[in-house]
């Protein structure tokens, strides 16, 4: 258990470090230097003017943020600095919008199936939905030993929702942002440079942390409910070294507990962010002439095919770990 926690912790740290490192690198001068090598040929078109590769990358990594400006007015951030200055009370409109649209899509599709569901011979959509639900139900039964009617629908929602959000990664990388830019420029009169749009909500840590904290709240709730407050605190303080090792126990178990949501969130975020990054880098090659562009096309196909595996796997891992954490919360061990 504890070696497992440490292992998880190590992985979180590495993911966190990797994600932060990529981010820092993008905004650093080194990135500009490395990307400078491509500059001559690599100039993707944005609107009617040419922009540099690093601008292109930065543009793709910036959320469309709504919040309060320095001067007290509310509105969308025009650049990364403004978005950062908005502080905590700001909303990433693209993340929220995409995730809610995809969530509604999920709800609509499965509700439609659930309304018409019949125990006879299933057909079409019902067959498909049953295949997924059966698969998730088997996973839950395999990993979750307690009695709780909430876990299976929770796992189902997590899997489908995250899969759909990850799936946006397979859309051509400029498709939705360009559409958003067109809409923003022509319908809202915005500056094309300030219409940011990140299509993949799971590349925004807010989305992954939101879900992970949701799961964490359930873990805490069920830990207290099943073991009692005393039992839960006892689990945190009296293991593994008995009451005389209490400070160390608290530290170890506390890290193990905190590691759960953070590892969940950062694993998903790190994987999707890195995948998105590679798509962006491949997209830059399209501006570099026919040969490099064709090579980029091949790379993109290859990476997209590989990415089908990643997006499914990440959704599955998030779901499975949620089930496992909730199972641990339900188990009493003295």
């Amino acid at each position: 258990m504890d070696s497992n926690h440490r292992d998880v912790c190590n992985r979180i740290c590495s993911f966190g470090v990797v994600a932060t490192a990529i981010d820092d690198w993008i905004y650093s001068d080194t990135a500009d230097f490395v990307i400078w090598k491509f500059e001559s040929g690599l100039k993707p078109k944005m609107a009617s003017e040419t922009i540099t590769s690093s601008e292109y990358i930065r543009h793709h990594l910036q959320n469309l943020t709504f919040g309060q400006h320095h001067d007290g007015s509310w509105g969308l951030a025009h650049n990364a600095q403004e978005a950062a200055d908005m502080g905590f009370w700001a909303i990433n409109v693209d993340t929220m919008g995409m995730s809610i649209v995809l969530g509604l899509l999920m709800a609509w599709f499965f509700r439609r199936v659930a309304k018409k569901v019949e125990a006879g011979v299933p057909s079409g959509a019902q067959n498909f939905a049953e295949w997924i639900i059966d698969f998730i139900n088997d996973s839950v039964r395999g990993s979750f030993s307690g009695q709780n009617n909430m876990v299976a629908p929770l796992a189902f929602t997590i899997f489908i929702w995250i899969f759909l959000m990850n799936l946006m990664d397979l859309l051509p990388i400029d498709l939705v942002p360009e559409a958003a830019k067109w809409t923003g420029t022509n319908m809202f009169g915005m500056d094309p440079h300030s219409v940011f749009f990140k299509v993949v909500p799971t590349t925004d840590p807010n989305a992954t942390f939101g879900m992970a904290f949701g799961v964490f709240a359930l873990v805490l709730y069920y830990s207290v409910k099943m073991k009692g407050l005393g039992g839960f605190i006892g689990e945190l303080t009296l293991q593994p070294f008995g009451k005389w090792g209490m400070p160390f126990n608290i530290f170890l178990e506390g890290v193990g507990l905190i590691a759960k949501p953070i590892s969940l969130a950062l694993r998903l975020f790190g994987n999707m962010y890195a995948g998105e990054m590679i798509f962006i880098l491949i997209a830059i090659m399209y501006g570099a002439g026919l040969i490099l562009g064709s090579f980029g096309g091949l790379l993109q196909i290859g990476w997209a095919i590989f990415h089908i595996l990643i997006i499914t796997l990440q959704a599955f891992i998030f779901m499975t770990l949620t089930i496992v954490y909730l199972d641990m919360a339900h188990q009493e061990h003295h």
């Binding site: 959320n63 502080g87 700001a90 990433n92 499965f110 659930a114 009617n149 929770l154 939101g210």
Partner: peptide, 30 residues
């Protein structure tokens, strides 16, 4: 890459979708 109130919005959306699936999707199909 900023953590902001989106995290709360996502938690709420997540809770709503889970509740929806728990009430209207999972039981009839199961």
């Amino acid at each position: 890459m900023n953590l902001n109130a989106t995290i709360i919005g996502q938690m709420i959306a997540f809770a709503l979708f889970v509740a929806f699936c728990m009430k209207y999707v999972w039981p009839p199909i199961m």
